[in-house]
Nucleic acid binder design. Structure first.
Length: 581
DNA sequence: GCCGTTTTCGGCCCGACTGTTTTCAGTCG
């Protein structure tokens, strides 16, 4: 059965190729396909089981798109898409991934110069035939060549993992905060929405001082490889690693509308601007204002702008036009989890794990310092080569924990384990030994290449094990480095509801696992609970909980479904219930 | 191609920048 995300992919491709056919990415047909794709991407019910009539009822899906979706489900292909694919083969589509080459230019290159791919483009640039075309000149030729050298093919598509983008954005914001007159420097764009990868980094600086001082400081930063734009209020650089960073300076009174504009998503903004138009207003990065005369209605804070449009403030992590505006209008936005709600960390390593760095007393003291009420110490089980703990070490750790418990009366310290899910769903040790522990996280650390059926079966077997309270980093992915294992998410969620086993929301920026789309689907299953955990390997990593919370928010996870927001009594009752089987 | 508590037809988000132009087209975010 074809999945929703596969259907959505086909529609996105249809939109992409229609852009070339229409010569404009804002063409209504393109936008219509994109809207339909987004709707289906955010849908929990499988579209493969829907009739054309049911499909038409979805937002942004009309008769034409509905019949194309049905055609895809029934025949495995869409006639119109096949037609476009043969008109625009992949080598040609690749041309439009070169910065500066849009649909119009690509088509003209082919029609006028016979350029059908990136190789042909290079040849045309080197032989200076491009400048002969109407509307083109030497400068355009130079710019495309420079863009090709700097960002290469796919420059518009290349995305940077959030861990790297967040580090660079932090450096930039810290440096710019030091400039006199600067009140605030914050990352916006997909980074603020907490997407797992970003195309570029957008930073807004609120300043009452000289904006040019901000820019002067920015382009002098060590991270700068090349300045690609320099102005008083807007500049852009490319970093040493090839990441583009845009900085814009705004006045304090523009902060709300500017933050909304630069945070996006584009689709979310379009919906808001449409709502403004319906009221006879106009919304841009400077203000929400009257269309006639331009009297400002709201601009200072995001809350004021949303309120003027009749909406509650919408959290950046869910601004994707994936149902959040409808939910806001209906007053049914989820009560999203916040960092201050956390009362414990349920995945904490100590130096007993070969890959961790701080001792048990250090980790416990750090957990207590965060004001938590409970925690689970979860070193690696013995099946993990090199990094795992032996039975004897664990028994000694148990005595240490008992002594530390006396020192920390306000913190419940559970001795747990991070167990390894074997190829067939077994876990480390034996049932008798495991009974001595108070908590269990089970994770996949091996056999990443099994089929979806095999992976699903082994994870479900672990969920059913009474020694297991949480499934750690569900897919095992490393963002930008390693894809996650193949899983039947529907079956996993059903098992999670049945067994009461929680899904971990791993806070490490390298993981953010389970992925947001899985969390969103899980959040729709009322019986699924979550644990926001850091998987900390040293005391400093306990602060990663902030990232886990933002990732959870992106997945629409409500506060009361996160077990480590619960009061100690309720939390411990939940732990015990699962362990009794 | 989709949509409608003003519409079933006539609309459909906004602005900056660039390079090529004498008023604008294309690209980008």
């Amino acid at each position: 059965m074809i999945s929703n995300s596969e259907v959505a992919s086909h529609l996105y491709e249809l939109a992409k190729l229609t852009t070339l056919a229409e010569g404009n990415s804002n063409a209504f047909r393109v936008r219509a396909y994109e809207t339909a794709a987004r709707t289906i991407d955010g849908l929990v019910e499988p579209v493969a089981e829907m009739t054309a009539e049911q499909l038409t009822a979805l937002r942004g899906v009309g008769p034409s798109t509905a019949s194309k979706i049905r055609q895809l489900i029934d025949t495995g292909t869409i006639e119109r898409l096949e037609e476009l694919r043969s008109r625009f083969p992949p080598e040609f589509v690749e041309l439009t991934t070169v910065p500066g080459i849009g649909p119009k230019t690509a088509v003209m290159l082919r029609d006028e110069l016979g350029v059908t791919g990136v190789g042909g483009l290079r040849a045309a640039l080197e032989s200076h035939t491009l400048r002969e075309l109407p509307g083109f000149g030497a400068k355009t030729e130079e710019n495309i060549l420079a863009a090709l050298e700097r960002l290469g093919v796919g420059g518009k598509q290349r995305r940077t993992p959030i861990i790297e983008a967040m580090r660079v954005a932090g450096d930039v914001c810290n440096a710019l905060s030091q400039v006199p007159g600067v009140r605030l420097a914050e990352p916006m764009g997909s980074l603020r929405r907490f997407r797992e990868t970003t195309g570029d980094v957008d930073v807004i600086v609120v300043s009452t001082g000289d904006p040019e001082a901000v820019m002067a400081r920015f382009v002098e930063m060590p991270v700068v490889r090349e300045v690609v734009g320099y102005g008083a209020r807007k500049s852009a650089i490319v970093s040493a690693s090839g990441l583009q960073i845009d900085v814009r300076v705004v006045e304090p009174h523009q902060y709300g509308s500017a933050a909304m504009y630069f945070t996006g998503s584009k689709a979310h903004n379009i919906r808001l601007r449409q709502m403004a138009i319906d009221r006879g207003w106009i919304l841009n990065e400077y203000a929400l204002a009257e269309a006639d005369g331009g009297a400002v209605i709201a601009s200072r804070t995001e809350q004021e702008v949303y309120a003027a449009l009749g909406l509650p403030w919408i959290s950046p992590e869910i601004r994707e036009d994936a149902g959040e505006i409808e939910a806001a209008l209906a007053g049914s936005l989820p009560d999203l989890v916040e960092e201050k709600h956390l009362r414990g960390d349920l995945h904490v390593h100590t130096s007993l794990s070969g890959d961790a760095r701080d001792s048990l007393p250090t980790m416990v003291a750090a957990v207590a310092a965060r004001g938590y009420r409970y925690c689970a110490i979860t070193d690696h089980g013995e099946d993990l080569a090199i990094n795992g703990a032996s039975r004897q070490q664990l028994l000694a750790q148990r005595r240490s924990i008992q002594r530390l418990q006396v020192k920390h009366p306000d913190l419940v310290i559970l001795q747990g384990l991070e167990l390894n899910i074997g190829r067939g769903g077994s876990i480390d040790y034996d049932a008798e030994f495991l009974v001595g522990f108070g908590f269990g996280v089970a994770s996949v650390h091996s056999h990443f290449g099994l089929s979806a059926d095999q992976q699903t079966a082994r994870v479900i077997a672990a969920m059913e094990n009474p020694a297991v309270n949480v499934i750690g980093h569900l897919t095992g992915r490393r963002i930008g480095k390693r894809p996650g294992i193949d899983l039947d998410i529907g079956a996993i969620l059903t098992a999670a509801e049945r067994t009461g086993c929680a899904l971990e929301i791993n806070s490490h920026l390298d993981r953010l696992d389970a992925p947001a789309e899985v969390l969103r689907a899980a959040a729709d299953r009322r019986g699924v609970v979550f644990a926001i955990s850091t998987d900390a390997h040293d005391a400093g990593e306990l602060a990663n909980a902030a990232w886990g919370v933002r990732h959870a928010r992106r997945g629409w996870v409500p506060k009361d479904r996160v077990v480590n927001t619960w009061a100690p009594a309720r939390f411990l009752k939940w732990v015990e219930k699962k362990r009794r089987g």
